[in-house]
């Protein structure tokens, strides 16, 4: 396996990791706001706060890791995406900044404010919407390069069914992933009123998720036939994805095995995300950047892979410790520590 393939695989795994942990975080923020709005905050907000407090920073790092990595392995992406994404990515940064800092202000500061909760909840939905533009752009047709200057055609972007279906898909997926995780977490904390509420959220958001996924699939076939054909060749991955989705729903209905329900959702998105990503190969930006021509030098690629392995050896034990202390420590989850 060539180093650029190793690089993109690693980065894609990290993006998948971000997708899961950030979805939990973003969705939880929205549910916390929704609960406050409907005066049910006493039921779930304690639960959400206990999970979010120790991990919010870690979530952000997944994202930083991805974009630093992609510019490292494929510097061409800085040139094209950097120029084209100036506005949408700046919006995403500002939303991330508001979200992260307001969370800290509210949580570690003294005052509870509905405004903070509102911004925290809404920014969580707007961030994925603006970041998902990068995925839309990668399909090609929105970025043009003329006379050495890269431009993004905003009119095409905002009128494209593809970009809107990706935005919708990202938002509903977040709510579905997050609700399933919170169901599992509530069950673990033995918090029955919260469990009841978040379980209905999970069931509610399952249908829009699968509909949005299918819609995106169809719209993509109109926009980028090559990518669509590649994805059809990977039909088994998407089949597995749907299978795991059905399993997750089954577990949720059964009202037991919530841990397995969440794992099924993770696998559902794993197969869909990798099916999509492998279908995208070899382009990072259709047709300007392919992973072979856009890759950095071998020496840098190898150094990055080396740093990555070294870093993982350091991080995995630390992450395990973090999870042991907070996520899987039943006494902590139940609020006794």
């Amino acid at each position: 396996m060539s180093y650029e393939l190793v690089g993109i695989t690693v980065l894609w795994i990290f993006l998948y990791g971000y997708l899961i942990v950030a979805s939990i975080d973003f969705g939880a923020g929205f549910f916390a706001f929704y609960a406050k709005f409907t005066k049910k905050d006493h039921v779930i907000n304690q639960l959400i706060a206990r999970y979010l407090s120790p991990v919010w920073e870690v979530t952000n790092v997944f994202f930083v890791f991805f974009f630093v990595g992609i510019v490292g392995f494929f510097p061409e992406t800085a040139y094209y995406y950097g120029t084209a994404m100036l506005v949408p990515a700046s919006f995403a940064i500002i939303l991330l900044a508001i979200r992260g800092s307001f969370y800290a202000f509210e949580n570690y500061g003294s005052k509870q404010s509905t405004l903070y909760t509102f911004l925290y909840g809404v920014s969580g939905l707007l961030i994925p919407a603006s970041l998902s533009i990068a995925l839309t752009l990668s399909e090609g047709g929105f970025i043009t390069e003329e006379n050495g200057s890269v431009t993004l055609n905003y009119l095409d972007l905002f009128t494209s069914p593809l970009s809107w279906s990706i935005v919708v898909l990202s938002v509903v997926s977040i709510l579905f992933i997050s609700a399933t995780f919170l169901t599992f977490y509530a069950a673990r904390a033995n918090d029955l009123p919260a469990l009841k509420l978040v379980r209905t959220f999970a069931l509610f958001w399952s249908t829009p998720t699968i509909i949005a996924a299918l819609t995106t699939f169809i719209v993509l076939s109109q926009h980028n036939e090559r990518h669509y054909e590649n994805m059809l060749d990977l039909w088994w991955m998407f089949g597995l994805s749907v299978g795991f989705f059905l399993m997750a729903i089954w577990f949720l209905y059964q009202q037991k095995n919530y841990g397995l329900a969440f794992i099924s959702v993770m696998l559902q998105f794993l197969f869909a995300f990798f099916g999509y990503g492998i279908g995208h190969y070899p382009y990072l930006l259709d047709p300007y950047i392919s992973i072979h021509e856009g890759a950095t030098h071998a020496s840098m690629g190898v150094a990055l892979v080396g740093a990555f392995i070294g870093g993982l050896l350091l991080l995995i034990p630390s992450l395990i410790l973090l999870m042991k202390l907070f996520l899987f420590d039943a006494a902590y989850v139940k609020g006794k520590k």
Partner: peptide
Amino acid sequence: LSLVWPNFMQ
């Protein structure tokens, strides 16, 4: 760094 200095980062 990438958004404002794309040519540098490239």
